[in-house]
Design a protein around this nucleic acid. Sequence first.
DNA 1: GTTGTCCCTG
DNA 2: CAGGGACAAC
Length: 697
Amino acid sequence: MSDHDTEFHLNRQTKRVDIGVKRFVISSASSTQTKQDVLECQEAQLGESNVLRKLLKSGSSYEDNIIPFSGATIITKLLKSNKATRGTGDRELVIPRNAEPEPLQEDTCSNSSQESAEAYLSPLGKISLNHLDSERLNEEYLQAKRARVENIIRGMNHLPNVMATSIGKDCERDLEGETEITVQSFSPQESNRENKRKQKLPQQQQHSFQQLVSTHKEQKVEERRQLKLQLEDMQKQLRQLQEKFFQIYDSTDSEADGGNLSEDSVRSDGMLGEDGMNEHLIQNSLADRSDNEIADLGPGCFLDEAKALLREQALLDGKMAKHEGSLRSKGLMSLHEVGKHLAETLKQELNSAMSQVVDTVVNVFSKPPRPLLQVFPSLEDHFAFNRNNPDFHTANQRLQCFGNVTFPSSLDLFVGVPLPCANDQMEALPLVVRKSASEHHQSSDPGAQIGHPHPSLHPSSLSENTGFISPSFRHPFSLPLAGYSFQSTLGASSTGYSSKDSPGSMDLSRETTSLRTKMASSQHLIRSCSPVLPGSTEGLSPNHLKKAKLMFFYTRYPSSSMLKMYFCDVKFNRCITSQLIKWFSNFREFYYIQMEKFARQAINDGVAAVDDIIVSRDSELYKVLNMHYNKANDFEVPESFLEVAQIALREFFSAIVAGRDVDPSWKKAIYKVICKLDSEVPQIFKSANCVQELLQE
DNA sequence: GTTGTCCCTG
DNA sequence: CAGGGACAAC
């Protein structure tokens, strides 16, 4: 643009100039809005996560309960009953664990008769046979009690084992080091072994006790210690599990709850229906099981039952002191069965609930767009319900969340077609792609178009077009902007978030956003490639946008003629020209918003002298701008851009400090300065493939 | 009629 | 964050 042109443009600037403050509000709202996109994706997960959350919240209630009823408390109860029954002191013996045979090993190796007998001997050698009999019975009862606790713990332990992979290798390693009881997954073999162990209890009583007396006490202490350790480890494991899930889902929750606007818009956007669908799906998946039932079967319920069990035990312990024999045996059997049944039920329910929830989540997210359905035909039938759902927008977004993860192989469909990399910012081109899709729609399925003039009113149109329902569908740009060959480089780094992110900010939301972006890219690819041959490049492509963004590093105010020169592979018409100009207008808008924002921030930070404002490649301002125009960070930003940015920032700073921002057109002068600072765009940008060439350098 | 900016939306 | 509508300047 010549200076004359520049002056021309600037002189035309109206009094409706950016007033600054309000733009911040907008900017902030935009950020919320962006978050909403993520939330919409995550919202789709919320339905599926409800069951998980219920389980975990049951676990939470368990956690709450466990505080007054901690492992130590359970042990205390056990010890109290033990004490009451045996009337012996409960002296803690500090014995190295290694020196002791492990109780479970001992239990599970029932052929180790000698060791087994140890558990049934009095702690004191000088006792009568009657006492011995009584003691045996007590020990038998204690042994059974221990078995019940083991069952309970295994039931608790099973959940983390099922969920396992990401949670706690450390924890598991700790557990392995501490106790054999808790870490092993509860296999059927073990179950059988457990049964065998219990069946062999009477036989064990036949062994002599002489040499075992001395170790009995130690063993009891060891058992208690191990039980305590087990419980502590289980609590730890459960806490880790809960933290893990709440970290994931409650953060989603809180974001959704925190942003009423987002949530409202999500609701009004039809997410309510989507939720309903999810619920329906979950209900289907969980058969007839209601949420309440699931919760009832969760750890909270388990704890209640465990409490009741132990209370019952305590009562029975009291009774036992007076009434030994059949009554106690009967109670013992009953308690044993209750505990075992409880553990089994818990395991089964947790297993089935978790696996079904996981299946449900995976299933819902793996509903592929139509081209992928051809790759995964079996899934199409499986998710037929989704295709009939009128809320295609959200369904499409959900696909975007997981797309490139779930269907990486789908890209193989486009072998031979140059693929855009994930960072080609194709998400910035809904307009371009929509045009392709709409054209595709019109050309490939005219009947549908005739029958349903507005695609959004026709549910199945989405399945034909993989989700294009937008007012802009009818935009006059539709035809001119039909497809363009994708010429971007493959395999470019996808770590474009690097500079701006604080270390802890790579959270799920960001990952989801990234996934969504990538999937959007995949969908662009899918939608755009099919009907358009690589040669017919009359419209604007994602690469053109990327090129325009890179050009912005050199020129903020390109003239129309300049654009025509540099986008020589584009067949210009009014719409294309407008679009390109609009792009640069948007670039500038963002650019100046950032300038003003950082200028005000500098003022707030106490920067006094304009000379103190330096824009370097380490500056946040630069990082933000680079992120915007060079997201993949695969282009070396020219030094001149930094210089201009610094000048612009200083201009904003000075203007604000001088109070010129009270003038509605205060930015006009700044624009006038900046527009003169355009530098020459390198000749390589005139190449149609300049993006590839630039990035290959 | 064209272009650029502001404001807003999704 | 890209794009559309409204609006103003030309």
